[in-house]
Design a binder for these strands. Structure first.
Ligand SMILES: [Mn+2]
Ligand SMILES: [Mn+2]
Ligand SMILES: [Zn+2]
Ligand SMILES: [Zn+2]
Lengths: 120, 120
DNA sequence: GCGGTAGTGAGATCGATTCTCAAATAATGG
DNA sequence: CCATTATTTGAGAATCGATCTCACTACCGC
């Protein structure tokens, strides 16, 4: 499972992880998936991603710190990843000013994806 | 209920809204609270806030556009609101570059609040 | 093999949200 | 006013992701 997650470029739900493992032969129960994810999260190897539909997703944390954020289409649900250096810079600067330690941050953008923007 | 929400400076869960309305005499069922919130959200009067504990919160959208974001203490759960102009600027600039319309954005910071940072 | 320990997952449980529907309330028209 | 129709409410059922339980399995050292 570790490897399956590591191979992902973007986030997956626990359900999806369990299904994919099943498809590829190595079936793993949902309970075990959640257990593993919790552990990986504590070890800072996996980050939780909450996009506001009722499903928590998980994605690997890159050792180098590179990461992206997500734009969600409120019409079709499609999730688009994006990176933005100046956004990250703003967040880094904010860290100093804030009376709050920062172990993670998450930026979620809502709107319509390219495809859904076209058709009225 | 509109007025109760409007009076809030920060987000409340549906549960909290129902409770507070009950305390102040005008009891309103949970179903009705959710109904009203959905409507207010469609009218762009209320914004959903998802902080990653299983509770969706809601807060009024200021007509002027002023708004804040949230830092969550992963130890005690306390929610701290913060504003940051340069973060907003970065998000505004991003809007142009992104192949995705933006109707809302949400920034959530995880870490430890001031109090929890002090005690080891 | 055998007892002990850690890991697994099917199914029970929980809790937030959504759905249903009968009752309450409001609006309409004579 | 009163009867009729339309709208709103909210208690409780249903849903569904996440978590918990616990019998069962796998593994380990002897
Ligand atoms: Mn970032
Ligand atoms: Mn903002
Ligand atoms: Zn779309
Ligand atoms: Zn705290």
């Amino acid at each position: 499972m570790i490897d399956l997650l590591a191979r992902q470029s973007c986030c997956l739900s626990a359900q999806e992880i369990s299904e994919r493992l099943g498809e590829s032969g190595r079936s793993v129960g949902l309970a075990s998936v959640y257990r593993a994810l919790e552990l990986l999260h504590e070890l800072a190897l996996v980050q939780r991603v909450d996009l506001g539909d009722g499903n928590t997703r998980y994605e690997p944390i890159q050792p180098g710190g590179e990461h992206h954020h997500h734009a969600v289409c409120d019409r079709c649900g499609r999730v688009t990843a994006f990176e933005d250096r100046s956004l990250e810079t703003a967040l880094e600067r904010l860290a100093g000013r804030l009376h709050h330690s920062i172990s993670a941050h998450e930026v979620v953008i809502h709107g319509n994806c390219e495809r859904c923007s076209e058709r009225a």
